[in-house]
Amino acid sequence: MSTARQVVRERRRKRRMMWGTLTLAAASVVVCLVLALLPDGTSGAKQAASTTVAAAGEATADAGQPRPTPSVKVKASSRPSASRSAAAAPKPSRTTVTKKPAPARTTPPANAGSGTASLAGRIRPGTDYQGVATAYEAGVGDGACGFGPSPDMMIGAMNTTDYETARACGAYVHVRAANGRSVTVRITNECPLPCAPGQIDLSQQAFSRLGDLHLGRLAITWNLVSPGSPGTLSVRYKTGSSQYWCGIQVVNHRNPVAALEVRTSGGWRQLGRTSYNYFLSADGTGCGGAIRITDIYGQRLTVNGIAIRPDAVQPTSVQFAQH
């Protein structure tokens, strides 16, 4: 009986040993297979994990700050972008702006002094001016220009702006209304504010040549003219003039007077003009001597032998040429 049990035990031991060996062999095979496959599997897992982390990192970076743009090399022949061209293009400067050419200077007449040109102020030859005509009671025709009674009543008062400190005094202007009527008047007076630039306050006699006085105002166009035959010009010394102080006025001139000079021991001296149309020598220099008169075209006339006779109109034998 004991022998039979021993036999059974021995068989069981051998079976355990065999299964153990088989298990160990199977385990070895599995381990070998795992070891053989482990590098690829681990690498793939790590790569997948790293890719996921990288993607998550990029998403975080994009959310927090701008993603850097890779630099691109531009070939020499590549066309620059518009923004680069705009930045590179120089901005215009005051010094590089091309200036318009200056208008040509008017050549003075043959009898004008050398180096002179048009000396006109606001009222210039060959220019049309727009404005309105009004009317006033002119009396005997005297006015701010100080010419005294007018030989005719075709006269007007120039607005203060265009009167320009008596520069307009004695100017002849041709006035045209929209209805086609026109009249030529001599400026003998100043029309103070609110007379606007371009406005001429005509004597009632002159206004009636353009339209009915009851109209009150007329739209006009006017321009400077040089009349045909006004005779010769005259010179007048102002009341109170002497060898110590004098005022000199030019009367009956064809063209507007731009300047008046008196001869002194040192040469010609230009006198300042007043709003009442006299040229003054405050210290008497040149009073009673030769006088040189220049019109707006640059013509110069020299007058001798005019004595200091206050308030006397003294005729001369000269006149400016017609233009």
Rank of each mutant, 00 (worst) to 15 (best):
E137V: 14
E137I: 02
A138Q: 09
G139P: 09
G139R: 03
G139Q: 10
G141M: 05
G141C: 08
G141L: 05
D142C: 15
G143W: 01
A144N: 13
F147V: 11
G148W: 06
G148H: 09
S150N: 10
S150D: 10
P151D: 15
D152A: 09
D152V: 02
M153C: 08
M153Q: 12
M153L: 12
G156K: 01
G156P: 07
A157I: 04
A157N: 05
A157D: 05
M158Q: 13
N159K: 03
T160L: 13
T160W: 11
T160H: 14
D162T: 03
T165S: 10
T165N: 14
G170F: 04
A171L: 03
A171S: 15
Y172H: 15
Y172N: 14
Y172L: 07
Y172V: 07
H174F: 09
H174Y: 05
H174G: 11
H174W: 03
V175K: 07
R176G: 11
A177L: 10
A177R: 01
N179E: 12
G180W: 10
G180T: 15
R181P: 10
S182V: 06
S182A: 15
S182Y: 07
V183E: 11
V183H: 11
I187A: 12
T188I: 08
T188E: 12
N189S: 09
E190S: 12
E190A: 11
C191D: 09
C191P: 08
P192F: 10
L193Q: 14
L193P: 12
P194Q: 05
C195N: 09
C195A: 15
A196T: 12
A196G: 12
A196V: 03
G198M: 10
G198H: 13
G198K: 05
G198R: 08
Q199G: 10
I200R: 07
D201K: 04
D201P: 04
D201R: 04
D201V: 01
L202V: 00
L202T: 00
L202H: 06
S203M: 00
S203D: 02
Q204W: 00
Q205L: 06
Q205A: 11
Q205W: 00
F207P: 04
F207G: 07
F207I: 00
L210M: 00
L210I: 01
L213C: 00
